[in-house]
Write a protein that binds this DNA or RNA. Structure first.
Lengths: 233, 233
DNA sequence: TGACATTTTAAGTAGCTACATATTACCGTT
DNA sequence: AACGGTAATATGTAGCTACTTAAAATGTCA
């Protein structure tokens, strides 16, 4: 009976979580100091600290030095999304993955691409258009721009064989990643590529990555009709 | 010069991150034991542990007791989304928030709603349809089902005044939340409500919440044309 | 050789201490 | 009352020790 009377930080976390949401503490309210909670629950401050850190991570509370801990005044639903390499996504569904390079061309980045990277001066980039297939049927269309200053090696990659998606994820770690989701209507070109009807509603995922402030790539991933993005846990 | 020669866990994390992605360790490779890394970097194991925990959180590595630490074999892009209460979202943009209840009715949950909750037997629910406004213009349409067994108090809430969205987030904490994003074409009814054109592509956010296994609510949030969802950090 | 029990190992957790750091709170001066 | 410097304080971080636990590795026996 030694282990049972030690409180785990998860227990402490759930205890506090429960107290908060039973109405004992409402949005904006200040919670007792870590040390006091530790006393009260008869555990170490470090245990409370870990519990609080977790609650802070999920957006339930806000912590500030000296300011103390308070319940987040504007509760948010915080969710985590995992976006795998497209090949893995297809294979996990039990389908056969295929890939087609549509076009690649070196050119100066247009205004919209520069904007995605928060840049103003012109940059030389490689534009790559490709189609991902699932059991020989169109699955995703990608329209990608890769910064040649940051990733010159992309020129030596045979993009007929290796998808830029996979090559970049495996070879180019990033320190910042912005994502953006929205819906568009398929235009004629897209619908042909994706085997959809013109006007179909499509989910679009836009992703831009940087390494230490330097732009790596920005990509518009256009999904097929009916595609759904789910949270992981 | 006392503080500078203590390594912070963030430094350790970045060091390992860097090693991994300079190619020193590739996907699936096993990393040294925490204790060895601690020795090598001349810091405490607990510092390495914290660094590793963080890398594990962002999906870069996988850790298993006895199995050790290895680089995630299938790298994923992990992103965090914050979905605020709609009123806060509108007000943060500097617009005036408005809300209209369209309809509410108690009824047995249809098959699709039961499916969202992974239930099979019929359940009595309150269906709520409402419109969120931004500066008097349609902003979001919500189609919600609230489980009356789990949240009987919803009957006493005046939904003409309080949006179910806000009331639930403030009063009904959840232990599980599933999200789903996809695109649909606006049908006649939606386009009328949202002031869009029939056939417009709309982003739809579906959210279901539970408290300790008991269903709370499931809601389809239909956004206006052009709506974009962004990652937080 | 294969199934099962045992040992070993590496991460996970809890507690303690000491110190760092960001703010808030306070107080004195102008 | 406004300003500015100082003290007080709650969280954040690092290090150490000790113990727990999941799971891989090994050994044992049929």
């Amino acid at each position: 009976m030694k282990s049972t009377n030690r409180l785990s930080w998860k227990y402490v976390r759930d205890e506090i979580h429960h107290e908060i949401l039973s109405g004992r503490y409402g949005p904006g309210d200040r919670l007792p100091r870590d040390a006091d909670i530790a006393d009260q629950l008869n555990c170490a401050r470090s245990t409370v600290q870990r519990a609080m850190q977790d609650l802070s991570d999920i957006g339930l509370i806000e912590r500030r030095r000296k300011g103390g801990t308070r319940v987040h005044p504007e509760p948010v639903t915080r969710a985590t999304l995992d976006i795998p390499i497209t090949r893995h996504e297809v294979e996990k569904k039990g389908a056969r993955y295929g890939y087609q390079l549509i076009r690649q061309k070196e050119m100066s980045a247009p205004r919209t691409v520069l904007a995605a990277f928060e840049l103003t001066s012109p940059v030389s980039m490689l534009r790559i258009e490709a189609l991902h297939l699932s059991d020989n049927r169109p699955y995703m269309l990608e329209d990608r721009w890769v910064c040649l200053d940051t990733v010159p090696e992309i020129r030596d990659v045979d993009l007929e064989i290796h998808s830029a998606n996979e090559w970049l994820v495996l070879n180019r770690p990033y320190t910042r990643c912005d994502l953006r989701f929205y819906a568009i209507s398929a235009d004629q070109k897209m619908s042909e590529m994706l085997g959809a009807k013109t006007g179909d509603a499509l989910l679009l995922i836009e992703r831009s990555t940087w390494i230490d402030g330097a732009p790596i790539t920005t990509v518009k991933t256009i999904t097929t009709p009916g595609y759904q993005l789910l949270t992981s846990s």
